[in-house]
């Protein structure tokens, strides 16, 4: 196919003021400059008078944005209030995982739950944070966290073992409530 130039018809109707060009350019520069200066000195009234800051930019990593509960960060395992992980190593997350990043070795325990994961490994370099594991879990034992900082220089360090994955249940109430609401129509 020969390469040709296609003239695109743009349906843009500009007023005389806009077509005169210069004033609109100046208006654009003014907007950008205003944001620049607010960001530059905007923290001063917040510090001095305790006023609420009007700017959006935060001083990462000292300051962080609170993500909504629906946000999916890296998956974590829930450590129950009794100090035992909720997971029973049923293997459904391992089965559903489209990236094959979960591997579990089940074993028997004397506790009432009978079964527990001897090892539970998530290969974070493979994980695509789709949230299927959370959705399929019958025990609410795996949840998506707010943690996004998983980058590392070594792939081996991105293998998260059970000890790295466990998070206390009390820190996860919000996400738990969200999950219960989101999947409520499947809970029977």
């Amino acid at each position: 196919m020969a390469i040709g130039i296609v003239k695109v018809k743009r349906n843009v109707k500009m007023t005389f003021w806009e077509r005169s060009y210069i004033p609109e350019v100046l208006r654009g520069i003014a907007i950008t400059s205003r944001h620049f200066f607010i960001n530059l000195v905007g923290f001063i009234p917040a510090i001095l008078f305790g006023k609420e800051r009007k700017i959006f930019t935060v001083y990462y990593p000292e300051e962080r944005v609170k993500y909504p509960d629906a946000y999916r960060g890296r998956p974590i395992l829930v450590l129950g209030d009794d100090g035992v992980e909720k997971c029973v190593a049923c293997g459904l997350c391992e089965r559903i995982c489209p990236a094959f990043c979960i591997s579990i070795q089940p074993a028997e325990t004397e506790l009432d739950k009978e079964r527990y994961p001897e090892t539970f490994t998530i290969d974070q370099s493979r994980c695509i944070v789709c949230g299927f594991c959370e959705e399929v879990c019958p025990k609410e034992a795996i949840l998506m966290s707010q943690d996004t900082e998983i980058a590392d220089y070594d792939r081996k360090k991105m293998l998260y073992r059970k000890e790295d994955l466990l998070v206390a249940e009390k820190d996860l109430r919000m996400r738990q409530a969200y999950v219960r609401g989101a999947f409520a129509r499947w809970n029977y």
């Binding site: 190593a89 293997g91 028997e108 079964r115």
Partner: peptide, 9 residues
């Protein structure tokens, strides 16, 4: 065989 592996694997 108990708890060694899931049968679907």
């Amino acid at each position: 065989f108990r708890f060694k592996v899931r049968v679907w694997f």
